[in-house]
């Protein structure tokens, strides 16, 4: 029973320990390549959030909060949005809101298409942190409910 409270079985925990880094890395890859292949800030952000949610499901919320707690997540969420708006506003200097004023570079290279990778990164902060917070909040409700029953 005590084992149950602190997360799932040892199989799940071991697999999680092995895969969670890969999931996070894959999320970062999707974000970084968002402008040259399918994916981008939203999809990558979701995968990044999933890696933290994975830890939370397998080990319980305490272990997950050691890696990323609500305060940090909410900070990243706001920062992501502010970076996005700032980048969009920088375009006004060049004439238009959202103007992509950086050099577009060569197509299909990692460093290309001007501001779009930066937008992707900002969105991934926002989405990753936001989704993590949503799941945490929905889970916290459940936990308080169980406490009341006991």
């Amino acid at each position: 029973m005590k084992e149950q409270q602190k997360g799932m079985t040892i199989i799940v925990k071991t697999i999680t320990r092995l895969t969670v880094g890969l999931i996070l890395l894959f999320g970062i890859y999707i974000v970084a390549n968002g402008h040259i292949s399918p994916g981008g800030g939203f999809a990558g952000g979701v995968i990044i959030a999933l890696s933290f949610i994975h830890i939370m499901l397998a080990f319980g919320k305490e272990d997950a909060f050691k890696k990323m707690n609500q305060g940090v997540a909410s900070f990243f969420e706001s920062i992501g949005a502010i970076i996005f708006i700032t980048l969009a506003n920088l375009g006004i200097a060049g004439g238009y809101f959202f103007l992509n004023f950086l050099s577009k570079g060569e197509p299909f290279k990692l460093f290309s298409s001007g501001l779009i990778p930066l937008y992707n990164i900002a969105i991934s902060f926002k989405v990753g942190a936001g989704l993590f917070i949503i799941v945490v909040i929905l889970m916290l409700f459940k936990i308080t409910k169980e406490d009341e029953k006991k």
Binding site: F75, E77, S78, A81, I82
Partner: peptide
Amino acid sequence: LGAAFLNSL
């Protein structure tokens, strides 16, 4: 929008 997110930060 900017003010909203600055607020939360």
